[in-house]
């Protein structure tokens, strides 16, 4: 039962149809959550007693950092599925998600450095978490660069899968070695398992932002995947019919 679903998921046509049903809902959820979270976080949440208003950047910084890390794990999971079950859709997902994850990492780095200016007095501090984030960005660059360097599409996807898996095994080692290298850092702001030290009016909008960012990530990745599926399957009858339906005036050669 689950296996038939699994193989159905591998079919590009089925994916294209089901994702067109998911997308509007997901997009609405993303917009709703992001707007609510931003307004609540930036306007209504109380000031931090130490950092004043400058702390409000965590409503961007923390979700972006979450997505940066989850994004790489997503790459590795897609890579594993692609290598073990040879599912083409996982290849598509991996290559669609890599640039989005990289942008999230850039966002986390930029907001982190902006946050650093009022907090530490400089734009950049070799703080353990910022440094790990920088290394994560390089890991993303590696996957993207490898994917673009290999011309054969299937080989590129497989090579990226191997690299993402090697990277994900290394991430904890890198993280702990960097933390050991620089033990001067703030404790993690927000964990899912422990009750946070922040008051509820502060962390609730943060939670909303995190969920909103996940929805946004899903929407962007799904849209990129749909485009890639259309390009890959451009010779098949259903794609020709789909293009005929959405763009009746143009004829596809």
């Amino acid at each position: 039962m689950t296996w038939t679903l699994f193989h159905k998921l591998g079919s590009p046509k089925w994916f294209y149809e089901i994702s067109s049903r998911w997308l509007p809902g997901l997009a609405c959820a993303a917009v709703l959550l992001l707007v609510t979270g931003t307004v609540w976080g930036l306007v209504f949440a109380p000031e931090d007693y130490q950092q004043g208003n400058s702390f409000r950047i965590i409503y961007i910084h923390v979700p972006a950092a979450f997505l940066a890390q989850s994004g790489y794990i997503f790459l590795a999971v897609a890579g594993l599925i692609s290598l073990v079950w040879k599912m083409k859709l996982a290849d598509v997902a991996l290559q669609a998600a890599a640039p989005v994850g990289a942008w999230m990492t850039v966002l986390a780095l930029v907001t982190g450095s902006i946050w650093g200016k009022p907090t530490w007095g400089t734009w950049w501090v070799w703080d353990a978490r910022l440094t790990s984030m920088l290394i994560l960005l390089f890991l993303y660059f590696g996957v993207i660069a490898l994917g673009q360097a290999i011309t054969n599409r299937d080989s590129a996807a497989k090579a990226c899968s191997v690299l993402a898996l090697v990277g994900v095994v290394n991430i904890p080692i890198i993280k702990y070695s960097v933390e050991w290298w620089n033990t001067l850092h703030q404790p993690a702001t927000f964990t899912l398992t422990r009750k946070p030290a922040m008051p509820a009016e502060m962390w609730l909008p943060l939670l909303i932002m995190v969920v909103g960012f996940y929805c946004f990530f899903a929407v962007v990745v799904l849209m990129r995947m749909r485009l890639a599926v259309l390009q890959r399957e451009s010779r098949t009858a259903w794609v020709k019919a789909e293009i005929e339906r959405t763009m009746p005036k143009r004829t596809l050669r």
Partner: peptide, 17 residues
């Protein structure tokens, strides 16, 4: 150059230790 880009981030723990 690509090799360096792919591998240098993975070398960081060894470098630190």
């Amino acid at each position: 150059l690509l090799l360096a880009l792919l591998i240098l981030p993975l070398y960081i723990p060894v470098l630190i230790l």
